[in-house]
């Protein structure tokens, strides 16, 4: 039976998803192995049923990320953190460095929308539409919020890396990647 696969991009740049598309024509092989459920690839907004595997890109920077991640945990058996943002927080986590301030979040917003020399914002307003999810006090990586089963490092992991890792997981084979695929220095 085909496994059900879901994917999501939280506080990430969609780079890992783009990289996933680099598996090129192998996507034809992949659809022989899996059925896509909730994912940006097919634009399913909701889970249709319980899934076997989920690929998570990005960490959590706002409440909506947290809810989505918790939803994935509840609806999928295996969560795979894909890429640096999901594993360590990645670029977004740099805002956690504003930790010596009394009000780090406000300082972050001021810097982004007012104080920076490269911002043109004559009204000095910080976006605060009720439709915008609230930001978290800092950026959390996925492991800090839910239990994560596997991690695929990279920024982004290459199409080959993702392909080999996913196939190994689907077939229950040992996860052995040649070092050139996971060595980044």
């Amino acid at each position: 039976m085909k496994k059900r696969l879901a994917t999501v991009s939280l506080a990430g740049c969609f780079g890992c998803h783009m990289s996933f598309l680099d598996i090129d024509e192998r996507i034809l092989d992949l659809v022989q192995l899996v059925e896509f459920d909730k994912s940006p690839f097919n634009d399913f907004k909701k889970f249709t049923q319980h899934c076997d595997i989920a690929l998570i890109e990005g960490g959590c920077c706002n409440e909506e990320n947290v809810r989505t991640l918790q939803e994935f945990r509840a609806n999928c058996d295996i969560l795979v953190a894909v890429g640096q943002c999901a594993i360590m927080g990645g670029l977004p986590v740099m805002r956690n460095a504003i930790m010596h301030s009394n009000d780090p979040l406000r300082e972050c917003l001021e810097e982004a929308y007012n104080d920076s020399d490269y911002v043109y914002n004559p009204t000095n307003e910080i976006p605060n539409d009720p439709a915008l999810p609230l930001l978290l006090d800092k950026v959390y990586n996925c492991t800090e919020v839910v239990k994560i089963d596997y991690q695929i490092p990279g920024c982004p992991p290459s199409g080959d890396t993702l392909w080999y890792a996913l196939v190994a997981l689907l077939k229950g084979n040992p996860y052995e990647l040649p070092s050139e695929l996971i060595k980044y220095d």
Binding site: R73, D103, R106, L134, L135, D137, K138, T143, E144, K147
Partner: peptide, 17 residues
Amino acid sequence: EGLQRQFNIQKALEESR
């Protein structure tokens, strides 16, 4: 249920609210 105990969403949202 796969949720980490030390993550407290209420605390994480306090400043933002």
